[in-house]
Amino acid sequence: MTTLKNSKGFWLSIVLALIFFGIMQFSISSGMLNPFYINTLMFIGINIMLATSLHLIIGITGQFSIGHAGFLAVGAYASAVMTMKLELPFIIAILAGGIIAAAAGMVIGIPSLRLKGDYLAIATLGFGEIVRIVLLNIEYVGGASGMQVSHLTTWPWVFACVMITVIVIRNFTNSTHGRACISVREDETAADAMGINTTYYKVAAFVIGAFFAGVAGSLYAHNFYIIQPSNFGFLKSFDILIFVVLGGLGSLSGSVLAAILLTIVTTFLQDYPETRMIIYSLVLILMMIFRPQGLMGTREISTLFTHKKTKGGKKDGSHNTVA
């Protein structure tokens, strides 16, 4: 596991990331980056967290969940309540957002034991909508008109959270547990037969994915001044899904890349929302027809340089075909 060569690569990447962090931090504090770009940068960070956390559920474990905005909403509201109503420090709010979202992940993870494929997809979509409607009806958090939140999210927070998310998810994927999750994705029945506790891993994926989505929600809430249930509709879930699909189902670096690229595209197309959505939808359709494995497939960036296939196995999901 930790030969000298490997740890070198690991530390190199950490150092690179820290250098990047330093450059950005310097640009921000010296005023070289104006708030518009800082805002974009933080939004990219939040989207990376959302994409990687959904990647764990869909890409690794093969549980097709399209209610990710529900976890985001739970995290956002939980953390906002912590800072705005209970006046607790931001770090506690972030953790609370994650933990409460993880609990929600468990709630939706348990039904997932009985459902698969399309039915699971539609059930998670329903779950996301239920979260939104519940929030809509709680006067304590402002109901439909939402909650005003003070601006606490800063670049170091976002950077630290993104780093932790990516490292944890990456290490989880490469651990025994991660391999068990992949086996669930490839063939649940076979995995069961091999003595893997599929139930446990499915719920675990939901809980971990939801935790990081909740943390992202905390950052989201404290970055946008106001949160409303309508921010977390299923279109938001689709946005996150698009990151994962475009990046390649099963590729962590693909999700990260897609989150970065699409956030930038979205920012520059902000004045043309319809065009953006038309491009998005066309990309989705064409991608599925001509390159269903996404930008990266299941590969990671590093394999592009080494020209070695590290992982066997097929793309995703069940082997049931259409028609």
Binding site: F10, I14, R170, S253, I301, L304
Partner: peptide, 8 residues
């Protein structure tokens, strides 16, 4: 670990 390097 190299993958991570690639990611970053």
């Amino acid at each position: 670990k190299k993958k991570l390097a690639g990611v970053f």
